[in-house]
Design a protein around this nucleic acid. Structure first.
Length: 414
DNA sequence: TCTGGGGTCCTGCCGCTG
DNA sequence: TCTGCAGCGGCAGGACCC
């Protein structure tokens, strides 16, 4: 198989090029920005169509941010100050207060994302969706796909995406998905990188292990503790040694990827496994002292998940909750019921029972509701029978926390 | 004044069942 | 009837990704 990995660079304000910009923080602020512009320039029409003419001084600054958001991404100018993705915005504001803070405009991102993917699919129809701004493409059977080792087709895709969206796109071309993904990062933005099987030793082995898609901070730290810093050093280890130290599955996988081997096909269709909604509170909440607020948020999350299921046409039978305490410890509880549901009341009842099984004496930072084991209605017979809808047996821990949940969810015992 | 939201997949543990 | 074992599914936690 010959694979492309293409990722599009999403920044829609050309006048901010070269400036420190951080994207993140959650809420959309464009409306506020347009209000200020209308006040300053009442004679002009301001809106999403005039984004490229908005004066730089009207963009919100990171220094004014208060809240619990994190940076989704940052421009290179902002990165020079030490700001990076997944960093708390309050910390980022200390490092680079003058940076412009842009909200994530989810509607616009979704619109551009669809355009990006449909443009590619018209040229090369075997496309795997890897998130809003990334795809894998199998171009083995695309006419002309092999010209100049794929470079001609990659250029065509880049050009078409720019014409459709006005955005640049980085593409990696390689014999498999693993290498194509790494290659796409060689030249950013708007680059094309081609890696042949014989280039693995010269181009891939010098890279840090963290560049492998699937090696995260934990695995990287463990590799480093064994003196393994680069993919080449990883490849030098015996397969058996890796299995001994990283487990049968992960160790064997590390060995394969270090030699650039990856047999995964480009998967064009997939069904969701679960759907969830979660929220981090503005301040940590307590099940008893803040029960009104918490109960309302809990109900809203259940309603949102139910609405998501209904809108997308799925039902699920595993219902669960997720809590993050003030010390960042995460606990989850879930239960599998006998029938599939997309009903908010059922979800809330079962999620409420799950909540009864966690420690609610501690302050809570985040609350989430999840529905898993999804099916499309009409295919429900395929699933095996699960738990009955009765309350699971009580443990001493459960009994100790009952008094809190009963205050939060009195209707559960009615 | 650190640390979002929405996902997937894997692993270990435990209880049930034959 | 009791025990040990293997297989399996559910559950909880964790790593990872965008």
């Amino acid at each position: 198989m010959d694979a492309f990995f293409a990722s599009v660079e999403l920044l829609r304000y050309p006048q901010l090029k070269g400036l420190p910009v951080v994207i993140g923080g959650g809420r959309r602020r464009d409306d506020d920005m347009f209000e200020r512009l209308r006040a300053a320039f009442p004679e002009r029409e301001w809106g999403p169509d005039t984004l490229d003419r908005i004066p730089v001084e009207f963009f919100p600054r990171l220094a004014n941010y208060t809240g619990r958001g994190v940076a989704t991404t940052a421009t290179y100018a902002a990165r020079q100050f030490g700001v990076g993705s997944a960093m708390g915005l309050m910390k980022a504001a200390k490092l680079c207060p003058q940076a412009i803070l842009l909200p994530v405009d989810f509607d616009e991102v979704r619109r551009i994302s669809r355009l990006f993917k449909s443009t590619i699919a018209e040229i090369a129809p075997v496309v795997e969706d890897r998130g809003v701004d990334e795809v894998y493409i199998d171009f083995t059977d695309v006419p002309g796909g092999q010209r100049e080792n794929g470079r001609v087709l990659a250029r065509l895709i880049q050009k078409s995406i720019f014409q459709a969206t006005g955005l640049t796109c980085s593409i990696g071309v390689a014999p498999n998905k693993l290498i194509a993904k790494m290659a796409s990062e060689f030249k950013k933005p708007n680059g094309i990188s081609i890696v042949q099987p014989e280039d693995v030793q010269s181009l891939i082995w010098p890279l840090p292990c963290r560049k492998i898609n699937g090696v995260g901070p934990k695995a990287d730290a463990k590799l480093q503790s064994h003196g393994i810093h680069t993919i080449g050093e990883l490849a030098a280890r015996e397969r058996a040694w890796l299995i001994e130290h990283f487990g049968k599955s992960y160790g064997a996988w590390l060995h394969e990827v270090s030699w650039g081997r990856d047999e995964r096909p480009v998967v064009t269709e997939s069904e969701p496994v679960s759907m969830s909604r979660e929220t981090t509170f503005e301040r940590d909440l307590h099940a008893v002292r803040d029960r009104g607020e918490l109960g309302a948020i809990f109900t809203r999350l259940c309603e949102q998940v139910a609405a998501d299921l209904q809108r997308k046409g799925y039902r699920g039978k595993t219902i669960g909750v997720k809590l993050r305490y003030d010390n960042f410890q995460i606990v989850t509880r879930d239960v599998t019921i006998e029938h599939f549901t997309d009903d908010a009341t059922t979800i809330r009842r079962q999620a409420g029972l799950c909540l009864k099984r966690v420690d609610l004496s501690r302050r809570i930072r985040l609350l989430g509701v999840r529905v898993g084991k999804l099916v499309k209605p009409g295919t429900e017979d395929a699933a095996a029978p699960g738990y009955s809808e009765s309350t699971p047996p009580k443990t001493p821990r459960d009994k100790a926390t009952d008094e809190h949940t009963d205050l939060l969810f009195p209707e559960l015992d009615s």
